[in-house]
Each structure stands twice: as C-alpha cells, then as structure tokens.
C-alpha cells in the first residue's frame, strides 16, 4: 500500500500565476476539476493530487506531512514556526514588505509619534523591524483590506506586501520603509524528503523545471 502524494498550491494571485505554468507537465492540474469548487484536484500523474489552500494555512499541511510538497510565499513562512524544508526560491510572485503611510507622512514623522499604531498581519517581521529600529508600537491585527486602516484612523501606518504599488496609490499611501522581500518558495515535508526521497524528489524536480 502506497499513500497518495499531495502537493499544496496556494489559492489567489500566486496560485493563478503558478497553475498555468504546469500545463503539459506530469503535474498539470485537471482542468475540469479546477473549474469546479473542489479543493483536491487530480494531476496528470495517477496517485498525485493537488490541494488548493489559503497561503496562511498551507505550511501547516506540509509541516504535518499531509502534503508532501507545497508552494508558498516566504513572507508567510517567516511568520510561522513550522518544521519543514525549503527546497528552492522560485523567484516568482516577488513582493516587497513595506511600511506604508499616508502621502506626506515621513518615516521620521512616524518615529516621532509618542504612540505608534501599525496595522498588519505580519507580526514577526514588524516586531523584528521595530527591534532593529529601536522603536515600540501597538500592532493592530488585520488580515485583509489593511490599506483602509490609516484612512479611517484605525492605525497610523500599515506593514504589508507591495507588488506593483497600485493598491497603495489608490488609497493615497506611499512606501516609507522597506522591511524585507518575499518570493514563492518550494517547500517539502521533512518526512517526505528524508524517508521517501526516491518518490518525492522527482516530483520536486518537475515543479522546479516548470516554475523556474
């Protein structure tokens, strides 16, 4: 008896960029299943299926060994304490993690505030930056539409991913500090690679060839 292999793909923008690149490979996702609402999609290789998962949940499936391989942004990995392997930087889905404030407010303005409030879902990266800068701040947890927070008085600024900057511009925000960079990473379950390298490594190679 051999357990089926599951590969976790992110839903959303990164997933939309990845999935077409797999067309014509042994790991191409079944087109009919993709159009349905199912989240477990057969691939062109029997016994290998794809899971479509929210990025923040994806590392947990891989760390637990439920999925043998996965693709997720390094920003998500850096926020979680997960025991997994990171096989490659795929260099796609590149983003900047930035401190963004309403236009006209500088970094010095923010640093001078007696009580700084930052809205973000990137707590670890923000705390590390605050420590480097010798600052303290109140972190306001928000998981989406974070650009609204400074406009509506919920926070002074935000820490969020920026790809093109169009969303920031639309909300009158500008980048005031660069905290880090993010790109998609090919990750693997420790057990999958260390206990079944002959089965999992070739699948990882297919993903690498298709996605880099």
């Amino acid at each position: 008896m051999t357990a089926p292999v599951l590969i976790a793909f992110p839903k959303g923008r990164l997933g939309d960029e990845l999935v077409p690149r797999l067309a014509g490979t042994p790991l191409a996702l079944d087109a009919a299943a993709l159009k349905s609402r199912v989240l477990r999609i057969p691939t062109a290789t029997p016994g290998v299926s794809a899971l479509l998962l929210k990025g923040a949940d994806l590392p947990r499936y891989v760390a637990a060994g439920v999925a043998s391989l996965g693709i997720v942004g390094s920003d998500t990995l850096d926020e979680l304490e997960m025991d997994l392997l990171e096989l490659a930087d795929l260099r796609i889905g590149a983003c900047r993690l930035c401190l963004c404030a309403p236009a006209g407010i500088t970094l010095e303005d923010l640093k001078a505030r007696p009580h700084l409030r930052l809205a973000t879902k990137f707590f670890r990266a923000t705390e590390a930056w605050l420590a480097r800068e010798g600052l303290t701040a109140e972190l306001v947890p928000l998981s989406s539409s974070v650009e609204l927070a400074p406009l509506l008085g919920l926070a002074d600024a935000i820490v969020d991913l920026v790809q093109t900057g169009a969303t920031l511009k639309a909300h009158g925000l500008v980048e005031t500090a660069l905290l880090g960079r993010s790109s998609a990473r090919l990750i693997a379950a420790r057990g999958a690679i260390l206990s079944e390298p002959g089965r999992i490594r070739p699948l990882a190679e297919i993903l690498l060839r298709a996605l880099t």
Partner: peptide, 11 residues
C-alpha cells in the same frame, strides 16, 4: 543517528 521508515512523517 536518526531512524526513519519509508513514508513516516517523523523520525
């Protein structure tokens, strides 16, 4: 030293 079984997710 680490002991694994093929398919095991933990040592």
């Amino acid at each position: 030293l680490r002991l694994w079984a093929p398919g095991a997710q933990q040592e």
